[in-house]
Every structure is written in structure tokens, then in C-alpha cells.
Amino acid sequence: MAELKDPLDETRWHHPIELQRIGGVHSNSVLFYFAMSPFFDVTSNNAIVFNQACYNPSMTHLLHTREAFESRLREMTGLEFIVAQEPAETGPGMGTGVWVIHKQTRRKREPKDEIVVHAAYYVVGEHVYMAPTVADVINFRMVTITETLSKCFASADKSRTWSPSTGHGYITAPTTSNTKAQTLESKATTPMPDSQEGNKAVAEAKKPTQSAVDSRLAEHSFMIHMQYGGEYMDENPITGKPGEFHLSSTGRKEKMPTLGLPSLNTTMVSSSLSQPDKKDAKTGEKTPKTPTGMSKIKRKKSRAGATPTSA
């Protein structure tokens, strides 16, 4: 028999010629049909009993019915293939056509034999399959789930967006109404010259890159703010030692315009501000005399009730 390339649990076997020779798959032929498949073990008790019955006339009756063949297997110890389930009846004279065969090891014990099941096979119509183990099924499901989740995370990361104004978000697929509106708007617009169309295409191509750069700069600025947000630099740094601090001016001071006014003597201003008025200091001193050559203004004394008038 040619060596199979696929694993046994991924192999589907059938033999149409053997199926015609034994008259189809039924209760008395299912084990012999299964013995022709690559799933069969030639060192099992099934092969031993079959070979003995072929060459020993006293054991030929074991090959006539499945019940007699299996009863002989139950009397032996070792590896065997036995029918575990027959096709279920779905109606009068109708069945599912599914046979379940177990590969198992029998050990004689009292009061009941010890049986260890190694594998399960099922015959559907003329095809024979090997049932996968529970560990293989769980492993396959876990691999499928992991692969699907990895693809999902990658797709979700590509559709994620962030902006300083709106925060985190996801790109949504355009709806049919939006597509129709864009189509109608493009038909109504006036075509632009080739140069403007080229500039627009370049600008559209730069939009995703610029958006990504802006997002990174905003994230970097926010990180700096969170790290150094509470630290500030004074406009006029404080210098000196404790107890004698001084504010050192920074920057460049502009001189105020003089607007053409004559400059004042600071010494005279300071002396005038510092010395008190002589009139205030000497209250008893008389008022200064009128300079020579000037006539003194005479005032008339006003009578009671009369309005004073000037001379």
C-alpha cells in the first residue's frame, strides 16, 4: 500500500472494488471493510482471528456474523477493533449510515474487563474517517482564535486616530448617502486646470502625513506639559544670598522720549524739594516790599453790605 502523505486524522479512505465484493457496508461486513483501510493495525486480535478462521474450518462460523466475531474478541486480551455504535434508526428500514469503531486495549479483570480506548473511527457510507482527539480540537480552536485576534488588533490599530481637539477615535467607513452626496458634488463643480489639479493631488497626498506629524507633536507637547507643567521660570530671576535677595532685570529697556523738553538740574530739584519754604519757616517775617518804580495797587475798604469794587 502506498504511503499516505496526509495525517491519518485528515485522511478520507474508500475502496469501491472491495465494497462491491462484500456487497456494501452492513453489520456483517463493516469490520472486514475497515480492515482494508490504512487505519487498521495488522497486529490486532482482529487480524489474528480472521487469519485463523480462514485456515481453520472449525472457526469459519466466526466470519459469518459480526456478533460471533466480536464475542471471540471479547474472550481475548490485547488490541482490538470493535463496533461501538451502530447507525441510528430514523424511520422504518432507514438509518443514518454512520458506524463508530473504537480502537481499544482489553485486559481481563474480575468482574469486568478493563478497556482503554485509543482512537475512534466512523464509517459514513463508503468513506472511513478518523475522529480527531479532544486535545487536537482544542488546539485547533485556540490557534484559530489567536490568529483572528491578532488580525483584529492590527486592523483596529490602523483605524485608530487621535487629535488634540477630539481625542481618540476610530475611522468609520463611508455610508452610501455620503458617497452619493460626494458624487453629486463632484459633478456640479467646475473642472480645474491641470496645474491646480496637480497641486490639489499633492496636497491630498500630504494630508495623512501632516495629520500624523501634528498628532505626534501634540502628544509630545502634552507629555512635556504633564512632566514639567508645574515648573516656571521667572522673568526677573532672583539673585543674592538668603536675606539679601535682589531682582536682576532681564531684557533690554528702552529710554523714554524727552519730547524736546529742557533738561532739569537734578541738584536744584532735589534741593528745592528738601528745603522748606521761608514763609512757612518764619511766620513773623513781613511780606517783601514792592520793587522801586512800580505803583502799589490801592484797595478801598468795603462797607458793610456793599460789594467791593476795584479802584
Rank of each mutant, 00 (worst) to 15 (best):
A154V: 14
P237I: 05
S186T: 07
R107W: 11
R107E: 08
A181K: 14
K158T: 02
E231R: 14
E18G: 01
K5S: 01
V202C: 08
Y228N: 10
E86P: 04
R109V: 09
A68K: 01
G97W: 03
P57W: 08
D280L: 14
G24K: 13
T11V: 08
E70P: 08
M268V: 15
T309F: 00
P237M: 03
G167N: 13
A205Q: 10
T287N: 15
S186Y: 04
P237V: 05
H118C: 05
E244F: 03
E18S: 10
K278C: 05
S295A: 14
S263N: 12
K282H: 14
G305A: 03
E89T: 13
E75I: 00
I238Q: 14
P16C: 06
K158G: 05
Y228L: 15
M226Q: 13
G293N: 05
S37H: 02
F32R: 03
L79T: 08
E231M: 10
L73P: 10
G78K: 00
K241N: 09
G284Q: 04
Y121E: 02
T105Q: 05
S44F: 00
R72D: 02
P92D: 12
Q210P: 07
R74F: 10
T65Q: 02
K253S: 11
S58E: 15
V49I: 06
G243H: 07
P193I: 03
G284C: 11
G91H: 03
P57N: 14
F81T: 06
R303V: 09
V137C: 14
I82C: 15
H118F: 09
M192V: 03
C152H: 15
T133A: 10
T292E: 03
D6I: 00
E67R: 11
M268T: 15
K241A: 10
K200A: 01
G95D: 08
E147I: 01
V213E: 00
D157R: 13
V100M: 09
L247K: 08
A47F: 10
Q52P: 02
L264N: 11
V25S: 02
P208K: 14
T90E: 08
H246D: 01
T267C: 01
N28I: 05
G23I: 02
A47I: 06
